[in-house]
């Protein structure tokens, strides 16, 4: 008999105070409590984390990499959003 599927979760870990949670991988668990425990055992065996988030993988909506040109086009042409676009005389010093 085929083994029934267990839901997939994405794991995010904050490694140090002041840092953001970062995606570290995924795992299978039947509910959120078990997902947290499994995340601790799989991803923090050497003190890698201070805090763990688990999110059902099915809850994630992702952008389509094939459409990345169109998706990110609005930012492409706006060089005036970068500080180096503006000229400040050298005498003014670091700004």
């Amino acid at each position: 008999m085929a083994t029934p599927n267990t839901p997939l979760w994405e794991v995010f870990i904050r490694s140090r105070n002041g840092l953001a949670h970062k995606h570290v991988g995924s795992l299978h668990a039947s509910d959120a409590t078990m997902a947290l425990q499994a995340a601790r055992d799989i991803y923090t065996r050497r003190g890698e984390g201070l805090s763990i988030w688990v999110v059902p993988s099915s809850a994630i909506t992702a952008s389509d990499p094939a459409e990345k040109g169109m998706m990110f086009e609005p930012a492409e042409s706006k060089i005036y959003r970068h500080p180096t676009f503006y000229e400040v005389p050298e005498e003014v010093g670091h700004m």
Binding site: A2, T3, N5, L8, G25, S26, I42
Partner: peptide, 17 residues
């Protein structure tokens, strides 16, 4: 083993399979 099953699953197969 578990990291690797998770990596394999990103290609479409399920771990159970």
């Amino acid at each position: 083993g578990l990291y690797l099953y998770a990596a394999a699953e990103t290609l479409g197969a399920s771990r159970e399979e």
